[in-house]
Write a protein that binds this DNA or RNA. Structure first.
Length: 109
DNA sequence: ACATTGACGGAAA
DNA sequence: ATTTCCGCCAATG
């Protein structure tokens, strides 16, 4: 249970509703700031495993783009985010920094 | 067993 | 300023 993947899952599960975080932020929190790709890959694996268990739709790239949107359907990733009060426009979050939730700011302090 | 890819991000040119 | 390349670790082909 100490795999990079599981670690990512835990952090994502801790994301408050109405907030979003980036792959890089999670990677940095895990101590591997260059492993952002792995974070996304972990979520990708998560999707075919248990998408309902982890709010992966709250994880976007550092640009606020719904990079993983194609992995979500019924409803779209944007729909889910907007349902939480997040404004999404053209597959990108408006005022991304405003909704950004930094794990090391809330968890590590 | 080896090479390539992958929901990214930052550094270098 | 923009564009390109490299790095990270694991999984899949």
């Amino acid at each position: 249970m100490s795999d990079f993947f599981n670690d990512v899952y835990e952090v994502v599960k801790l994301i408050p509703k109405g907030r979003v975080t980036s792959y890089g932020a999670i990677g940095v929190y895990l101590g591997a700031k260059r492993s952002a790709r792995m974070v996304g890959f972990a979520l990708n694996s998560l999707n075919h495993n248990a998408e309902g268990q982890v709010p992966a739709h709250r994880v976007v790239n550092r640009l606020g783009q719904l990079s993983g949107a194609p992995a979500f359907s019924n409803p779209s990733m944007a729909e889910r985010l907007m349902a939480e009060g997040i404004v999404v426009e053209d597959g990108q979050i408006v005022d991304f920094a405003k909704y950004f939730w930094n794990p090391m700011d809330e968890l590590s302090l």
